[in-house]
């Protein structure tokens, strides 16, 4: 298929940036979206132009590196997938595809379609962990009784790959689905209880500090999340923070 691509080009963080049109031809419907981007970049390199910078790593929907806001949606028009799993069969010959970086003040553009998502790292560092003695006498996790239901819910929350599609999709650029998932995966398990109060308070404080917006429960994040993280995780985070604020002012 032959396509017109409207791509955000930005030389660096200080550059103003603009949308630039490109044509690509003979794109196979079996290609992934990132392979189509590879074809474009090969074409640009061969003609002496600067290739389009975009994030990618595993190309298996696991790592959370690939981003891209495609035709007005995070990771494109398909559901439950990352951009590397988006296939060109979702598009038609002659289509014009708009490709933009995640847009959020907390995710500044580094170059072209690459954004700085280290705000997520700082939120994680603020409390997204449990302190475990790993000096050789670590307790076997299976020795702690955990209900199947809680284990399943914690695993569902832990499926978050931190790609940032929630922020990109939210009209408020809110990171609450991400933080809700990271708080939930520990809040649901006994191992997470010891640091629960400080965890939620510190992670929410860091989230606010990073400049993400406030959740207004539109549910866009849940729809666009490639890993099916649900709004229940935001509700749980809200309860956790309320509880933590009652315990520790």
């Amino acid at each position: 298929m032959n396509l017109t691509l409207k791509i955000w080009r930005q030389k660096g963080p200080q550059d103003k940036g603009k949308m630039v049109d490109y044509k690509v031809s003979d794109i196979s419907e079996h290609m992934s979206f990132l392979e189509m981007m590879d074809v474009l970049n090969e074409q640009l390199v061969n003609s002496g132009e600067e290739p389009v910078a975009f994030d990618h790593d595993c190309r298996e929907g696991i790592c959370g590196m690939c981003s891209l806001h495609i035709n007005g949606e995070a990771h494109g028009p398909d559901r439950g997938i990352t951009t590397c799993q988006l296939h060109m069969r979702m598009f038609k010959d002659g289509d014009t595809i708009t490709i933009e970086p995640w847009r959020a003040k907390a995710f500044p553009v580094i170059k072209d379609l690459v954004v700085d998502r280290s705000a997520f790292e700082r939120i994680q560092q603020a409390g997204g962990y449990i302190s475990v003695n790993t000096s050789g006498n670590t307790q076997d996790a299976n020795s702690i009784p955990i209900s199947k239901h809680a284990a399943d819910e914690a695993m569902d929350a832990a499926a978050c790959i931190g790609c940032g599609a929630c922020v990109a999709s939210c009209k408020n650029s809110s990171a609450m689905l991400f933080v809700g998932a990271k708080v939930s995966q520990f809040a649901l398990l006994p191992q997470g209880q010891v640091e629960a109060t400080d965890r939620v308070k510190n992670m929410v404080a860091q989230m606010d500090l990073e400049g993400f917006g406030n959740c207004t429960n539109t549910g866009a994040c849940e729809v666009e999340c490639p890993k099916g993280i649900t709004l229940e995780n935001i509700a749980r985070m809200n309860r956790e923070l309320f509880k933590a604020s009652l315990i520790k002012f």
């Binding site: 806001h69 035709n71 917006g213 866009a220």
Partner: peptide
């Protein structure tokens, strides 16, 4: 505050694909 959290708007944004008009 929410408006300021996105300093550059999307050139194309399909809000209807994932949320209601009301929300």
């Amino acid at each position: 505050k929410n408006k300021s959290a996105r300093n550059i708007k999307y050139a194309r944004n399909n809000g209807a694909a994932n949320s209601t008009w009301m929300s």
